[in-house]
Amino acid sequence: MDNPPSTSKSMTPDSQPPIIHKKDLSFLDRIYIPQIVNGLRITITQIFRPKFTRQYPEERWTPPPSFRGRPVLVEQNGVERCVACGLCARVCPALAIEVQGSETELLKERYPVKFEINMLRCIFCGFCEEACPEEAIVMSQEYELTFTSQDDAVFGKEKLLMSVEKLRDRLEFLRKNR
């Protein structure tokens, strides 16, 4: 410990300012004209300050590698890495994932026949990515999702698959930080 605990228990306020009550207001504060002038000054100076907002549809935001966008299945050499263990479906707090596995001739032996994520249920918590023992489901950088019907919102394998090259930033981030 660098500081003994007693220093944090100092009772005497060192920088606590007193409350300014109505009786403490000066004559200028009371007549309110200086306040109005100050308000106008703020408005005018704001014009010359840099803008804080973003013109969204024209000006896009690039998410950092830590960003949790929509979950996708990693596709490597034309097939998904997923082995249909069902751990993502188990951990999903929103019960958004449905997996049905079957056997395959490939080295991984099992693959998902059906892999569906209901994007209306998904809460983007990233638990599926964290639980996955195959690095097969990761959170992508995509954050713009629109559907026109509830059926459209259930993403099957064809919508979920994303090639490993596109996910390089995220996979690197995960290997470094998890």
């Binding site: 660098d2 500081n3 605990p5 944090s8 306020p13 060192d14 606590q16 409350i19």
Partner: peptide, 20 residues
């Protein structure tokens, strides 16, 4: 306990005190 901070306390019991 290892960090040094002060707990602000006021005695007015009203909305203004909560603001402070």
């Amino acid at each position: 306990p290892e960090l040094d901070f002060h707990v602000p306390v006021y005695h007015d019991c009203d909305v203004l005190a909560r603001f402070y």
